[in-house]
Write a protein that binds this DNA or RNA. Structure first.
Lengths: 174, 174
DNA sequence: GTCTATACAGCGATAGAC
DNA sequence: GTCTATCGCTGTATAGAC
């Protein structure tokens, strides 16, 4: 799903890769919608855990955001896309339950970023223009878009430069 | 293609919408790859024309960039995605010729933005951090990502706020 | 839980009449 | 250029044996 999208992968693909038959896969996930929702939910849970880990490890907002953007680098390095971004593109063709999980995924990321930026602003390490919510959205959108643009150009370095520029934007004063 | 993606639309969809048979459509576009490439090429040509029009109409960099971001608003208002962004997500599953057009599309947009920012910097109306190329990439990525994020949330206002914040970032000094 | 076999719909694509 | 009809394939999903 991360490389080909929801519409681009099939039971046959997955079954072959893990070495069982299509029918066996259907035994565990009755419909493609259920399989897709399970995968997306697992991804969202994993992301939530990663965000919690970052908060536990790093007391400082700047460091937390650097770790956050590193998550995207890791995904891109494996020639994949953030699953949320992938499914956001296909959003109109997704089953209802999957749409809901994708929306929740973005809310979670946005809220975490907003909280982190607020934390940094209070501590004096960050001074973004506009509200915390605006800065969070610029960062989230910017990273997602940078990933999208970088993949066709096979330009991992370009992504990293863009990510650094986005983070630098949070340090500037008016 | 803009709403459902390359993998998500079919000859039957298009034929039904324009009121001819699938076979007739095949007469004009022998393969789906050819149809997809023609659509993407037309989109790229239209975009190039729109960029030229903006340059002809607006002498000032700030105004040009505002018009540029307005292009995205218009697309989003029709509940669509920029076709380049859509196909960038599906990139791995696209036929080779389409991949090439998508790459060229992004290069065109990037180069135009970089030139416009350079123009604004020389005129003194813009003062972005970093190089012109970096600022162009942040803006292009940010707008593409903002569109991606806005659609699932049905949040056109959120997109516009983000777009304004991205443009505001180009005005700040270090 | 796994498999083979199969149903059934939709896909891209072609043949050939008009 | 348009159509109807059809091909071959793949897709999701199910039946039923082991």
């Amino acid at each position: 799903m991360q490389t080909r999208g929801y519409n681009g992968f099939s039971y046959a693909d997955v079954a072959a890769e893990i070495g069982i038959s299509k029918a066996s896969l259907h035994h565990h996930f009755r419909t493609k919608a259920a399989l897709g929702a399970a995968i997306m939910q697992r991804y969202a849970d994993g992301t939530a855990r990663a965000l919690a880990d970052i908060e536990a490890d790093e007391p400082e907002a700047t460091e937390r955001l650097a770790r956050f953007s590193q998550l995207y680098v890791d995904v891109l390095r494996r020639k994949r896309l953030c699953l949320g971004a992938m499914l956001a593109a296909e959003f109109g063709t997704l089953p209802g339950p999957m749409q809901k999980i994708v929306r929740q995924f973005f809310r979670t990321n946005h809220d975490w970023l907003q909280g982190t930026i607020s934390h940094g602003r209070k501590a004096g390490s960050l001074a973004p223009q506009g509200t915390d919510a605006e800065a969070a959205r610029v960062l989230l959108s910017g990273l997602a878009g940078a990933m999208l643009v970088a993949r066709p150009q096979k330009d991992l370095d370009g992504f990293q430069v863009t990510a650094r520029a986005l983070l630098a934007g949070l340090h500037r004063h008016r």
